[in-house]
């Protein structure tokens, strides 16, 4: 079994944030993946999706599923992150009032993504964009 999915994400479009995560959840359920693993994957993915919507201009999500792991790549074009170490700190946020009104912007997303991942890597270039690579293992 090897599957690949791709989704496009528009910055600022909060009404659709979560569509990709929702579809991935459905797929993983159909594949009978352990609900605990599914929750870790979709929470990390949703946080990443919301970050693209909240902080970037647009982006792409690539999902690869095989029998051992689920790999997520979230690649956006956006302002990038000047100080990744600071962004990874719990509580650091540059979210706008509009984002806060949506129920986000507490500076908890990136740490939460890391916590839910078995492997996590973030790369960012100011003025270009941000890349997140996440892996969650299916059998532990």
């Amino acid at each position: 079994m090897a599957m690949h999915f791709e989704y496009k994400i528009e910055g600022g479009d909060f009404t659709r944030a979560g569509n990709a995560s929702s579809q991935v959840k459905r797929t993983l359920k159909q594949l009978n993946v352990d609900p605990k693993v599914i929750k870790r994957v979709v929470v990390a993915l949703y946080e990443g999706e919301v970050n693209i919507v909240a902080h970037a201009y647009h982006g792409e999500i690539h999902i690869d599923i095989d029998t051992e792991k689920i790999k997520l790549a979230l690649i956006d074009q956006g302002p990038g992150i000047p100080n990744i170490e600071q962004a990874m700190e719990m509580g650091f946020s540059t979210a706008t009032p509009e984002v806060r009104e949506m129920g986000f912007g507490a500076g908890m997303g990136l740490p939460n993504i890391k916590k839910n991942s078995d492997k996590f890597r973030i790369e960012s270039e100011v003025g270009v964009g941000t890349k997140l690579y996440i892996e969650v293992y299916i059998n532990q």
């Binding site: 909060f14 009404t15 944030a17 979560g18 995560s21 929702s22 959840k25 929750k39 979709v42 929470v43 993915l45 949703y46 919301v50 949506m102 129920g103 986000f104």
Partner: peptide
């Protein structure tokens, strides 16, 4: 809002 439902779903 819709995000509360998405959050619950995930």
């Amino acid at each position: 809002n819709v995000q509360a439902l998405r959050t619950a779903e995930m």
